[in-house]
Write a protein that binds this DNA or RNA. Structure first.
Length: 770
DNA sequence: GTTGGTATCTGTGGA
DNA sequence: AGATACCAAC
């Protein structure tokens, strides 16, 4: 023990994980277990031990996590913290690529395409290829391209891959590989990288290793740390391995993650990485630490969470426990409609605030989809409760903001085709679609940026003149961009491009707010320029337009809320709530097809991911957890009727307040043999008490210990078999009907009250006994 | 080429 | 419901 004060703030396992600085380390960290603390103290410890800050690379998923980490390191070691390479994968890699891009044929001022840009490129290609856009769904194609890249599959490898091609044929999208090919070409000639490219091109760079660039970074980053490792994809892990796995490497790599909180499989993340990591570094003396004590939530919440996650199949065994007292039971709110849900949730917020003296900022409403926020906003407004919505349409996605940014992007990189298309005729300057299509076709043929071909297309004299004027204007912007600072340049461009005048002619309410947004953007650029240089690790003193653009390309709404102070109720998606905690959590919309999302219902993997998401949601709560559902809600202009989420049913009744908000939960579902040991840890003094009307009749949600349960493939289930079900226990299959995907079994479970159950086989987990 | 209206389609998550 | 695509008329 060194006796350093920060080490005293750690529990034993945490301290071991901090002190074990050399060699490979895997930290498996449950929710609220002090994971960030371990990471930051570890970095601080390295610096105190004499490691230079710039030899440390710390990769996170969100800017927020990166910022928090830097702040906390700074508190321990002071200014040195600013020299640590800490940031998101995307931001750090973009920073490296700015320096090295020319080695792989990109300009150093490359544009970063956001997902809207990507979608628009794909749309344009689908159109040009004359493909049916109802078959070639943009998002489907985009995610396919994205996962190909994340698996290191080039367009050529894609076309040669029988499995992928077969999948595309099955989906009647056999030209996907052509779109991928063209997409890649287009980004390249535009000097643009999409989010996946920031990873993929970096991999390409260090793979090809021109001028020994790989060795440079291997030598630089002596210590590598990765946060949220369960959310890394194949490509990210490949890059990490390249950096630390080589002959003579000290392999000072520390990854921190929680398989139970992996919620980004949809964008290629795989918990396989955690398992692989263990194996890959086995022979280099990997140390594994498990952080199992939860410092955030009451026992009630932790136990409920443990129980829920036990329904998932594959996981790293761990037992999360809390000593924060039993706590309040979980409350369930039932509503008939979405409006009623809104009202009742906000009513409860008011009540809770009063009764427990909670401030607004200690309360959050979490939902599965951003679209659900509206009704809660309505009632919060009505009750005069200040709130803040995160996510959804970000500031930078607004039309007027994108318009100006497109001009700025062109001024920095005129090859940027998406920016060019966006503004070539906005404000109106008589360069219509026909002309743009001609230029685009020429660009495709010559595989040259549209910008280079503007003057060469065959058009009438009027259009020709208009194009020439546009080119002159952009050229003047380009000159401008190299001189002044970003703010002055942006103001001048906004005026000279005619954006401000155009908006001023619109006197509607929306028009006014657009103008305001434009001004807000300009103010933001001003702040960027004036910002104290020393405060940010990423921003050198570069206050150029190019630097600004790179900065915002990787920002989300989430990041640039300076005024995060203030007493607001928080509204956000469960995804964005990851890593956060609140005294009181309201998890709303607990309905089948919403949470779990209908998109995930087809596969067991999808469902497991939704369950992990549910796990993440409930473990955000420190003291109070309230779940709500509506039996009907408007979606896409239509009233839909919903069933209660299966996840609600998976919550042990003993952790629920008995409000009768759940059907068939009359506390009589038979006696109980709850999986022993679960509740034994919590006999402690009840800090809550006052809320519990009755403490009788705890019903057992599980009849089978999930640890010994191994479900059989559902296609093997046949009439006459004896099977085991987690909740219902042993049963006999009476009949199976339906076909293919929709086989339904009628099963007689002798251990439960209404023994005859019809079960969708694609969802059910049944273990065949005989 | 531009304008303004109607038909159609979309159904998560985020750097 | 809201955005976007498409189409007819100027």
């Amino acid at each position: 023990m060194t006796g350093k004060s920060y080490l005293d703030e750690l529990n034993e396992v945490q301290r071991k994980a901090v002190i074990q600085t050399d060699g490979p380390v895997l930290v498996v960290a449950g929710p609220g277990s002090g994971k960030t603390r371990v990471l930051t103290y570890r970095i601080a410890h390295l610096i105190e031990k004499g490691v230079a800050p710039w030899e440390i690379l710390a990769l996170t998923f969100t800017n927020k996590a990166a910022r928090e980490m830097k702040e906390r390191i700074e508190r321990v070691v002071g200014d040195a913290a600013n020299r640590v390479w800490a940031g998101t994968f995307h931001a750090i890699f973009a920073r490296i690529l700015r320096v090295e891009a020319e080695k792989i044929g990109y300009p150093s001022n490359f544009t970063i395409y956001d997902s809207d840009d990507s979608a628009s490129v794909i749309n344009a290609i689908i159109k040009e290829l004359n493909l049916d856009k109802s078959v070639y769904n943009t998002n489907a194609i985009r995610s396919r391209i994205s996962s190909a890249k994340s698996s290191l599959i080039t367009p050529r490898l894609y076309a040669e891959n029988e499995e992928l091609m077969e999948q595309d044929r099955m989906a009647k999208r056999q030209y996907t590989h052509v779109i991928y090919q063209k997409y890649t070409e287009r980004c390249k000639r535009s000097g643009a990288m999409d989010f996946d490219d920031l990873l993929y091109r970096l991999y390409e760079l260090i793979q090809q290793n021109p001028d020994g660039v790989l060795d440079k970074y291997r030598a630089r980053f002596k210590y590598v740390l990765v946060d949220e490792f369960q959310d890394t994809n194949h490509l990210q892990y490949a890059i990490i391995r390249k950096l630390v796995q080589f002959e003579g490497s000290p392999r000072n790599i520390c990854v921190v993650g929680d398989d139970a909180q992996s919620i980004y499989a949809f964008r290629g993340a795989t918990i396989q990485n955690i398992l692989d990591f263990e194996e890959d570094f086995q022979k280099y003396g990997i140390q594994v630490f498990k952080l199992e004590q939860n410092y955030r939530s009451t026992d009630q919440i932790v136990q409920a969470a443990n129980h829920v996650i036990a329904y998932n199949r594959r996981q790293i065994p761990k037992t999360i426990w809390s000593n924060k007292g039993v706590g309040h039971k979980i409350k369930v709110i039932k509503a008939l409609t979405d409006t009623e849900e809104g009202k009742r949730v906000v009513d409860t917020i008011v009540e809770q605030r009063n009764r427990y003296h909670l401030s607004n900022k200690e309360i959050a409403i979490l939902y599965r989809t951003n679209a659900q926020s509206r009704i809660f906003e309505e009632y919060l407004r009505r009750y005069n409760l200040p709130y803040r919505v995160f996510g959804g349409l970000s500031f930078y996605q607004r039309k007027e903001v994108k318009d100006l940014i497109a001009y700025l992007r062109l001024a920095v990189n005129p090859r940027d085709e998406e920016a060019l298309r966006r503004v070539i005729n906005y404000p109106k300057r008589a360069i219509g679609d026909t002309t743009v299509d001609k230029i685009s076709a020429a660009a495709g043929e010559a595989n040259q940026p549209m910008w280079e071909l503007l003057g060469t297309v065959d058009v009438g004299p009027r259009t020709h003149k208009a194009i020439a004027a546009f080119v002159r204007m952009i050229q003047s912007f380009m000159t401008l961009a190299q001189t002044g600072n970003a703010y002055e340049v942006a103001v001048t461009i906004a005026e000279r491009a005619g954006l401000i005048d155009t908006l001023k002619t619109d006197t509607t309410v929306e028009g006014l707010s657009r103008l305001e947004n434009l001004n807000a953007l300009l103010d933001g650029i001003k702040t960027f320029v004036e910002e104290d240089e020393s405060s940010e690790t990423t921003g050198q003193e570069d206050k150029s337009l190019a630097s600004y653009l790179q900065n915002i390309a990787l920002l989300t709404d989430f990041d640039n809320e300076e005024n995060s102070e203030g007493d607001y109720v928080t509204l956000m998606s469960v995804h964005s709530a990851k890593g956060l905690e609140f005294k009181s959590i309201f998890l709303v919309g607990m309905e089948e097809k919403l949470f779990p999302s209908f998109m995930a219902l087809d596969t067991p993997e999808g469902l497991d991911e939704e369950r992990r998401l549910f796990y993440v949601a409930i473990t955000r709560a420190e003291l109070f957890l309230t779940l709500s559902y509506a039996l009907s809600r408007y979606r896409f202009g239509q009233m839909r009727y919903n069933e209660i989420s299966r996840f609600l049913e998976e919550l042990p009744r003993e952790h629920l307040e008995s409000t009768g908000a759940l059907p068939g939960t009359s506390f009589g579902r038979g006696s109980s043999t709850a999986s022993a040991g679960r509740e034994s840890a919590s006999p402690g003094a009840s800090v809550s008490g006052n809320f519990q009307r009755r403490t009788t009749a705890q019903s057992a949600p599980l009849r089978v210990d999930p640890k010994t349960f191994s479900p059989s493939p559902s296609n093997q289930i046949q009439a006459g078999m004896k099977v085991l079900h987690l909740k219902f226990g042993e049963g006999k299959v009476i009949s199976v009907d339906g076909s293919q995907d929709n086989r339904v079994a009628t099963i007689h479970f002798s251990e439960i009250d209404s023994p005859e159950r019809r079960i969708m086989l694609k969802f059910a987990k049944l273990q065949i006994l005989t």
